[in-house]
Simulated scan of single mutants.
Amino acid sequence: MSTPGPRGRVLIVAGSDSGGGAGIQADIKAVTALGGHAATAITALTAQNTLGVHGVLPIPVAFIRQQIAVVLRDIGADALKTGMLHDSPTIAAVCEALAAEAPGVPLVADPVMVAKGGHALLQPDAVEALKRLLLPLAAVITPNLPEAEVLTGLEIRDEAAMRRAAEALLAMGVRAVLLKGGHLEGPRVIDLLATPDGITRFEDAKLESRHTHGTGCTLASAIAAGLARGLPLQRAVARARAYVRAAILAAPGLGQGHGPLGHGVTVDPARIEALG
């Protein structure tokens, strides 16, 4: 399936955001901005803008599997990324397809459960399927605190609780966890990268902005782009975090609600103009 050597190919299995701020659209932009090639298998269509999700249309699971198979059998992948999987049949189909078509390819799993505006993107009865089928396949999972609370059953209100939750997720058979602490109160944002070898702590000043729609999708895809280029996990995470912060600062200020990031922050317009 894959040819030798990392080439930056990322297959993204996730939902579409018609507003372009999150989902497949954010994934494609992040991977492209970091020098990779993004291929996709779309799991659901959403009618969405910066004010929220207004409708969801699931894609038939047979067609999701077909998208995965035809991409991997032709183009291949150096990393995989999953986002919105919506329900148990979709989770099962995606996991079966990835295990069959891309064994050994590192998977970044973003356990998407709720949209920024509060709309549920994962059916309640699908949480157990996600824990049982998806998490063991992942090289790293990237839950935020509300998602980690659902997965572990723990209340997370401070860094000590984050560490307990990360350890609980590892105990469930997860190989690595990037637990995102942006929901904690305070002026600093703390993320923890936990592996069986220990915990790496990342800390930055919290950016005050309403233009943070799609940060989770963007971060997970940026990590996948790094892994697809052969970066070790810790380096891929550090680079992805730096990219997301730069993209928040470069946000174009669109929409009336939670606006999109400036995914093209890595692009030099003057250089492009010079080509013309």
Rank of each mutant, 00 (worst) to 15 (best):
G153N: 08
L219V: 03
I75M: 15
G36V: 00
A79N: 06
M113D: 05
L169E: 06
G21V: 09
V61W: 06
L178M: 05
I42E: 12
R73C: 04
V10M: 10
V177C: 00
V244K: 02
M84V: 15
G186P: 10
R9K: 13
L151C: 10
A194D: 03
A242R: 07
E203Y: 02
K180S: 10
D197W: 13
N144W: 03
I68C: 05
E203A: 13
L98R: 03
G262D: 12
L72D: 01
V140F: 00
D158S: 10
T40K: 02
A62F: 07
A247P: 07
A194I: 02
L121F: 11
M113S: 07
G255Y: 05
R73G: 05
A238L: 01
L11C: 09
L122Y: 06
P58H: 09
G264M: 15
G118H: 11
A126R: 01
L85A: 09
C95S: 13
G35F: 01
A242H: 07
A220I: 00
G255D: 08
V105Q: 05
G276R: 15
D74V: 07
E155K: 15
R163D: 03
V140Y: 00
G118K: 11
G21P: 07
T195C: 06
K131T: 06
D27F: 02
T212G: 05
T43A: 10
L98S: 06
A161C: 12
P143F: 00
A44I: 12
P4A: 14
H213M: 12
A39N: 02
P187D: 14
S18Y: 09
A138L: 04
P260R: 08
G255E: 07
A247N: 09
K116E: 13
A138M: 04
L72N: 01
E185G: 15
R210Y: 06
G83Q: 10
A69D: 14
A224H: 01
G226C: 01
V108P: 00
L170C: 05
A242C: 10
A194Q: 03
A30H: 04
R164W: 08
A115T: 09
L192V: 00
A129T: 14
A77E: 04
A205L: 14
V10Y: 06
R65A: 15
I199C: 11
I91C: 09
H263P: 07
A168P: 01
I199D: 09
G83L: 08
A246S: 14
L11F: 08
L233T: 01
R9W: 04
T50S: 13
L254E: 12
T218F: 01
A166S: 07
T218N: 05
G182Q: 09
V114Q: 09
A102V: 06
G214N: 02
Q66N: 14
E96G: 14
G230N: 07
H258M: 08
I190G: 02
P260A: 12
R7M: 13
Q256W: 12
I248D: 08
